[in-house]
Design a protein around this nucleic acid. Sequence first.
DNA 1: GTGCTTTGTTGCGAACTTGTCACCTTTCCG
DNA 2: CGGAAAGGTGACAAGTTCGCAACAAAGCAC
Lengths: 234, 234
Amino acid sequence: MVTTDFVKPKILVVDDEPDAVDLIAFNLKAAGFRVTAAPDGEVALKKARQESPDLIVLDLMLPEVDGLEVCKILRRDTATAGIPIVMLTARAEEVDRVLGLELGADDYITKPFSPRELVLRIKNLLRRRHGGEGGDPDRLQIDELVIDVPRHLVTVAGRAVELTATEFRLLSVLAQRRGRVQSRDQLLRDVWDYDSLIDTRTVDTHIRRLREKLGKAARFLDTVRGVGYRFAES
Amino acid sequence: MVTTDFVKPKILVVDDEPDAVDLIAFNLKAAGFRVTAAPDGEVALKKARQESPDLIVLDLMLPEVDGLEVCKILRRDTATAGIPIVMLTARAEEVDRVLGLELGADDYITKPFSPRELVLRIKNLLRRRHGGEGGDPDRLQIDELVIDVPRHLVTVAGRAVELTATEFRLLSVLAQRRGRVQSRDQLLRDVWDYDSLIDTRTVDTHIRRLREKLGKAARFLDTVRGVGYRFAES
DNA sequence: GTGCTTTGTTGCGAACTTGTCACCTTTCCG
DNA sequence: CGGAAAGGTGACAAGTTCGCAACAAAGCAC
């Protein structure tokens, strides 16, 4: 539990009612997710870009910029385009309207909803994303590369690869955010410590070491010039 | 019991006395097993590899290659290493000698034995091996290492190992989470008390003591550098 | 009490990890 | 093309981790 914190899916909850946020956050945490919250669209967009959450729960009704707009912007921005979005709507008939707009949220749920249902839908979306149908969420499998977090084990085409603790964490974080670019700063925050004073070039060194050890599977580690690194979509 | 033959467990009986083989085979078949037999070590090894039986009943006294030798070879060969072995010995005192050799048969039974007892032991071993359905959940068996939690008893290849209370708890916790890395903090919480103020290095010391006492079975205690310890998957 | 076992702590050294730097190579762009 | 910026690479020194042994304290039987 403690050792695997860094791969717990991180979920951004966007809602302007603190009570709703609390309720959702409580249930999500109980289900083993990390939670971060935003009260309005502006903060939501900022956090989505900076913290690179694995999924966003987005209330349709928001002050200032409304949920629809936020959704659209998130989809347009490459840094956040891939993140699944679950829309919260107050009334059922709104769903139809929203669907008609085709703005590409991945699921919809109407208030009031049972926390259990929300958790189920979130798990579903995350599972779908990780390709592992019905698979263990702690185990990432991308073609010949398998990352087993609780076991702290990585294999490439069935062959075990020996990674150090840092390398393992770096690979896990990248793999978990497959397809999304992670800036060096973002990686330093998530793989190293919260406010690490480490040089960003250090990330490059670790990427190099990972590539060396991963052999064939190194092809997954894309460099995005001027931005950061990305775990290849496939 | 079982309707389709191919799911009946197949048992290889190795004994040089045809009468003994007949007796055993008769009783095993009556109990719903398929039986194949070998009169000596050489044939036994060949059949073990080719027919991949679910369990082997092995007489200690054999012409040419003796039972001990056969047992050792079976254990070393990856194709047969996982097959449970029940050793037949002519006299009770031989059991001690055999145990001393630590060659990892899974059970021992002395001649003369009641067929019913043999069948019981075989069923036990098979049950335990198959993911422990209906098996004793308080008893962990990993190859030659047996941890009997309620009895506070640990044996390696049939030989009892004397562990202190702390050592026993540590081993049990690790074994129960086989394959998953446990951080030192996690272990301190689970093996020691909830909010123990004990130094994490203490865990190392206990691991060392465990390894010392477990002898051959120490190979199960993996160190995962920078993370913690893990009970090896196999 | 005395002697024995258990258990937590400490110090040492070897092996491993890891952040940084200097130096290349590649890419970008006018 | 030429220069600048970004990223790859190898080396290295400082830091960390872990096994081990010795020690000290606590518990326990007699």
